[in-house]
Design a binder for these strands. Structure first.
Length: 283
DNA sequence: ATGTCATCCGATGGATGA
């Protein structure tokens, strides 16, 4: 099973880019962030046509998260992060897909800091840490994927002093991310690529993409039970170089899990292809 | 401080967020 996270930076404007990437890489599960679209504007029909069922939490102009599944529709378990009923920002959605619980996360940016936005970021992080702990205790396979808006270490950013005051690099932000990981989550890309930067975001400003001045702020985290299934992980950098690209590139992890809706490579019984096809055609 | 992209509101551009 291939699971990916992609901060799409406006799913309506970026739909051609999203569809081209889905066609080329065929992830089984996709977490999207920064839809920047109201519920009614989400391009569900186009994604369905591309073979993906979707669930989403939209919001006008800002935020917005979604989960896509190839050949099925995710079963929503939560549409908001617990812990603050007054929080109306669309930053969390959680769903079950083939026995795995998947969360699409858009952690607050937190700039400028210090200030109310940074306080909101840290409070949101605390709520995420508490909820992640509860999910872990449930002993089910869980994937936490999204834009965590944290540069975890200095390896995760190009050599630069211009981000010193940024909320993404503050010790409090980094400590919160460490605290989350310490519960036992595996940062897929970092686990398999411990020495390379593996950037996932390049600011539009100041020629940062052409000079590879990137940040690694998007991640696919695996619960302890899933960690041994991790086979490969990476960043689809080429997506960032396309016309009208998002400022993020997709981050993915390949797990050695049976994919319920995938066509099996060989036929254990008669006509498995036809059966698999008719099942997905019902969607 | 700079500079990029995009949208909002509501007016021919400034404020905002990332």
């Amino acid at each position: 099973m291939k699971v990916a996270t992609f901060n799409i930076n406006n799913v309506v404007r970026r739909l051609p880019n999203l569809l081209a990437w889905l066609r080329k890489t065929k992830p089984d599960v996709v977490c999207l962030q920064e839809l920047k679209a109201e519920d009614a504007a989400f391009p569900a029909a186009a994604l369905e046509k591309a073979g993906y069922g979707a669930v989403w939490c939209g919001q006008k102009t800002y935020n917005g998260v979604a989960i896509l599944a190839r050949g099925s529709t995710p079963v929503v378990t939560r549409r908001a992060l617990p812990g603050d009923e007054s929080d109306v920002q669309s930053r969390y959605i959680e769903a079950a897909i083939g026995g795995v619980l998947v969360a699409s996360i858009y952690l607050p940016n937190g700039n400028p800091q210090p200030g109310p936005k940074f306080a909101y970021k840290l409070a949101w992080f605390d709520r995420l840490i508490a909820h992640a702990r509860a999910l872990k205790k449930a002993k089910v396979p869980v994937i936490l994927a999204g834009d965590f808006n944290v540069v975890p270490t200095d390896l995760d950013i190009y050599p630069s002093k211009s981000w010193g005051d940024d909320a993404l690099l503050q010790p409090e932000s980094r400590a919160a991310f460490r605290k989350l990981l310490k519960q036992g989550w595996t940062d897929s890309v970092r686990a398999l690529h411990p020495k390379e930067p593996m950037y996932s975001f390049w600011d539009y400003m100041r020629n940062r993409w052409p000079r590879d001045a990137g940040l690694r702020i998007d991640a696919v985290l695996l619960s302890p039970g899933l960690a041994p299934t991790l086979r490969a992980a990476g960043v689809d950098r080429w997506v960032r170089g396309k016309e009208a690209a998002s400022d993020h590139a997709p981050v993915w992890a390949e797990l050695d899990l049976p994919t319920r809706n995938a066509t099996p490579p060989r036929a254990p019984r008669a006509q498995p292809k036809a059966r698999a096809r008719s099942r997905s055609a019902k969607r």
